[in-house]
């Protein structure tokens, strides 16, 4: 979906979101709450500049609009694969964006994410995957890598992976798999403005993804392992 379409459905009362290169920024009202919107478009690769621009928008929101909820609208091809970005420390720029999200959270901003088109690995980690709650639109693509690439890298036959992917959400791309594993809260259909409002009411600062994955049967171990580590008797 185009971001303009998504934005129109999310903010039927209007919005001032603008596109600057591959950065989206602006705001829009949801009921009587105004959201700060920060995003990416054109299947962009997230390089040092975009990570820094998104971070700047988060920090500006915290300074100028205390408590205003933040919505990440995500469409990305992943991290930018260039030697130049590596030379400049792209991991630090990504980390900085993640830190800004955490700082916003500690300053009582609710942070939501919405994958409206596609999200791949590194371009998705420091923004929507840091949100209190992340959703996806029905046609959204979410993946680490497609099955043929995975077959090449892991030297596991493609047919085998395809069979395994029928039963397990672990291997194959797809927003539905990320729902089952708890990383995507829900696929938003119908009235997007209503879904946004409901999500804002439910979002809280704790990371519930592992418990969701456990409850939905898509990620059986993560939650119980974390519990075991936290609760193990101290043997000192």
């Amino acid at each position: 979906m185009q971001w303009q379409q998504a934005a129109k459905a999310l903010f039927p009362q209007g919005h001032d979101i603008v596109e600057e290169g591959s950065l989206l920024r602006g705001s829009g009202p949801c009921g009587d709450v105004v959201f700060a919107v920060i995003g990416s478009t054109h299947h962009t690769e997230v390089g040092v500049e975009l990570a820094l621009d998104m971070a700047a928008e988060v920090l500006r929101t915290v300074r100028e609009h205390p408590g205003r909820p933040i919505l990440f609208l995500i469409d990305t091809e992943g991290q930018r694969l260039r030697r130049r970005d590596e030379l400049l420390g792209i991991n630090r720029y990504m980390a900085h964006l993640a830190k800004c999200v955490e700082i916003a959270r500690t300053h009582r901003h609710r942070v939501l994410g919405l994958v409206y088109d596609q999200a791949l690995s590194g371009g998705f980690i420091p923004n929507a995957m840091m949100a209190d709650l992340c959703a996806a639109l029905p046609d959204a693509q979410i993946r680490v890598m497609n099955l043929p690439a995975m077959a090449r890298v892991t030297r596991i036959p493609l047919e085998r992976l395809q069979v395994l992917a029928l039963d397990s959400p672990v291997f194959a791309p797809g927003a539905e798999n990320f729902v089952r594993m708890g990383a995507i809260d829900a696929i938003w259909e119908g009235d997007l403005a209503a879904r946004l409002g409901q999500a804002l009411a439910r979002a809280d600062p704790h990371d519930h993804r592992r418990e969701l994955g456990e409850a939905r049967g898509g990620r059986a171990l993560a939650a119980s392992i974390v519990r075991r580590v936290i609760d193990a008797a101290a043997s000192e």
Binding site: A98, E102, M130, V144, M145, M150, F171, G182, D207
Partner: peptide, 22 residues
């Protein structure tokens, strides 16, 4: 990310990052 656990690995890495920051 452990590519053999593609989606589970990506989610796990993002949970580690959130846990560090929290």
């Amino acid at each position: 990310v452990r590519l053999q656990e593609a989606n589970a690995g990506l989610i796990a890495v993002s949970e580690v990052i959130r846990a560090i920051l929290a």
